[in-house]
Design a protein around this nucleic acid. Structure first.
Lengths: 222, 222
DNA sequence: AGATGGGATACTGTCGACAATCGACTGTGC
DNA sequence: GCACAGTCGATTGTCGACAGTATCCCATCT
């Protein structure tokens, strides 16, 4: 097909394509908990057959974004506040603590450049109020560090957890209260990583992730 | 087919069937890290077409038991000791702490009976040295409590974590050192659950899970 | 009117065939 | 002998069609 026209589509399999479309639709609240997902409709809409759609649905099921019932179809799932706060976020802390510590010795100069670019992107997105771009860069920042940790299970689990957390915050917590602060926190985190002291990094990771959870409940101090 | 002969096979879909076969083969070390999984061969061996096999492989990929590469096939994955000890087990603790606390108010008399049956099964299996039966009952015990917690994401994540942990211990830590002790520990855990005090239960869960990790390093006390 | 049974209906589950891709082999030119 | 292009076999990715199942609707009976 297309010699020069649109060479990007075939670079990823149709299954990956479908997964990405649906995951974005769910995490951005275009699809909501309870919405039914009908294979043949999705296939027609996305211009494929049902096979890739089915595999995509199985993957999203494993990511906890959809549930499916034999012969009765699939629906979009929601997450409770209790599960996010007591399960998903603590798990994310465990994953990132380990991944960041493993990544410390493996981050190359190119990696640091890439991370800095992402922080810059966050600053710019925060400046113009582009919360989606901000969130994308935020996620990509963390994902990049975890990729560099070279811990496959860690990365795989993170990818499973993260969309649910994002869907929850996108739906129930109207974006970041303080976009500029988010960018700044990542800059600080990056600076700490560059110093390379494990204990300091782990501490920074803890505080960093929990900022998402409790945006402004400082009852003890400031 | 078969009006009375073998009515159990069709109760689960062929995909579930394939998943179960492969997962068992991996967690029981009949398949080892690096082994290639070829769709056509699996399909022929299991008497189905490739479609259910493919979906099963996608699911196992999400469970971290296999990895697959576009147009190049799938292989069985292993887990490192560091990942088990620093990632998978801590995540399991997080999941079970939450699930057990949520389950406390929801466990019915029938549930307690079922749990007691599983503990009895463990005792018997431990008595005759049937480590696989012991491990099955062990897993089922925890799974049952988590099911009763009615936290879908918790259950889903637990099902994702657990096979990797089991595969690791089955492969690298030759079964439980002390089968009778395992059964006894579950009886104690069940007794604590029956009492219903949350703090005590959480404490028991912590200690219970960590027993798997460090089977016999009691440097401080007994 | 309300309960009950027998289809239509709308999906999902499975299959066999075909297209696309990767990796190894092989023959050729230098 | 060695680099390199072409080819071939093995295996995955995708498709369209058919089989199986749950749900709803409606005629029928009480």
């Amino acid at each position: 097909m297309s010699a020069l026209g649109l060479p990007r589509v075939p670079s990823q399999s149709r299954r990956e394509h479908v997964v990405q479309i649906l995951r974005t639709a769910i995490t951005s609240a275009r699809l909501n908990p309870g919405d039914r997902l009908i294979e043949v409709d999705l296939a027609n809409e996305l211009g494929t057959s049902r096979a890739p759609v089915r595999e995509a649905l199985r993957q999203l099921e494993q990511e906890g974004l959809v549930a499916s019932y034999p012969y009765r179809g699939s629906e979009v799932l929601g997450v409770s506040q209790a599960e996010v706060e007591q399960v998903l976020v603590p798990i994310r802390v465990t994953l990132e603590r380990f991944a960041f510590s493993q990544a410390l010795g493996r981050l190359s100069g190119a990696d640091f450049e890439q991370l800095q670019l992402l922080v810059d992107e966050m600053e710019e997105a925060a400046g113009v109020g582009a919360t989606d771009r901000l969130a994308d860069a935020d996620i990509r920042f963390h994902e990049l560090v975890i990729e560099c940790s070279e811990q496959p299970h860690c990365l795989q689990l993170w990818k499973t957890i993260q969309p649910r957390v994002r869907a929850y915050f996108r739906r129930d917590a109207p974006a970041h209260d303080d976009p500029v602060g988010v960018a700044k926190q990542h800059q600080e985190l990056l600076d700490v990583i560059k110093l390379g002291d494990e204990a300091t990094v782990l501490d920074a990771v803890d505080r960093h992730i929990h900022l998402h959870l409790a945006p402004k409940p400082p009852p003890d101090a400031g």
